[in-house]
Design a protein around this nucleic acid. Sequence first.
DNA 1: CGCCACCTTGATCCCCTTCAATTTCAGTGG
DNA 2: CCACTGAAATTGAAGGGGATCAAGGTGGCG
Lengths: 193, 193
Amino acid sequence: MTRTVIDKGEHLFRSGDAGDSLYVVRSGAIKTYVDSAEGEEQIRSFALANDVAGLDAVCGGVHRTGAKAISRTWICRLPLNAVRTRMAESVRFRDRLLIALDREFSRLHRLLDRERYTADRRVASFLLSRIEADATHSAAIELPMSRTDLARHLDLATETVSRVFTRLQGREILRSRGTRCEILNTEALRTVA
Amino acid sequence: MTRTVIDKGEHLFRSGDAGDSLYVVRSGAIKTYVDSAEGEEQIRSFALANDVAGLDAVCGGVHRTGAKAISRTWICRLPLNAVRTRMAESVRFRDRLLIALDREFSRLHRLLDRERYTADRRVASFLLSRIEADATHSAAIELPMSRTDLARHLDLATETVSRVFTRLQGREILRSRGTRCEILNTEALRTVA
DNA sequence: CGCCACCTTGATCCCCTTCAATTTCAGTGG
DNA sequence: CCACTGAAATTGAAGGGGATCAAGGTGGCG
């Protein structure tokens, strides 16, 4: 287990790379993405503090997404060969990896759920997932990604995301300033999603 | 390993069921789906002959999709507990399961790729995936699902799917009749996708 | 032959994208 | 501390692709 730092914009791994490790974000944030045919990034996940990245390569050994830092990020690296051998030896360790893989499947299915959602609903369900992911379940969440990145994660135009935020602020559901986003009315947000 | 038959519309398993088995389709076809908030099925996969179903429960033990037969279908059932114990014992067996899981991840990521696609492109990429899945790579593919099911898989309205097929037939790219679909010009189809 | 489900076709509408113009903000240097 | 600068975010106007609504058409099967 080793620790590293990567600067904003730098890659943790690229699509197609051999995936020989799992990564845990200690602080900062990274995004995983694929390049669409049109050359723009389609973002598949954000990994904030305590999130795991690199699970997409556990089964096949090859990353199918790239991962780069959104801001300066501290990372713990767990070599996969150690993970694999310990999986064969220890049932408890195997189960833990299975749980992580199950979460990854859930995450992808949740992304697919969003496909028929309206723009408002997409943003709302994203914000709710961020609240739930936050251990404190506090009403304020950190959104370190740019509006553009958020848009490319939700499959919307940047302008649309911006308009949805404006609309939600007008309805007093949230207050957004920079990377900080206060949820003023979680119930109302839930009715949107 | 046991064999069963299920009739059109019958469930192989339901969302939330304990997932204690993997299933291989011998003949016929099944669809896996989730119920959207609006109550209509969103179809996550079609399993035709030789396809595997039930992988979504391997890691967590619970199905996150339902599965029902599109037509009368013959199924092979492989109990998962046998799979799991053999996974701990045999490295070769473990690797085989990892490969299956990797394919499942790839499949979900391919579904996510389609999110920004136009209607034409969605249909085209679906047809191409069916051609590639076909062992013979023949120019004729079997589409046992209804237009409605196809639409709910591609996240389009039934009418839109119908219109795309009409358009592609007008351009002499394919000829569709009932469940049979002949691809007349694979290259042209590839430029659409 | 006739019923019913499924598919196709047409007309209209709406949400989101696109294009274009400001405005805001973070970072930099005077 | 404030002016400068480029990137990012916001706001506005217009256009388009697919959804929806509404009829017909087609085919399988009793």
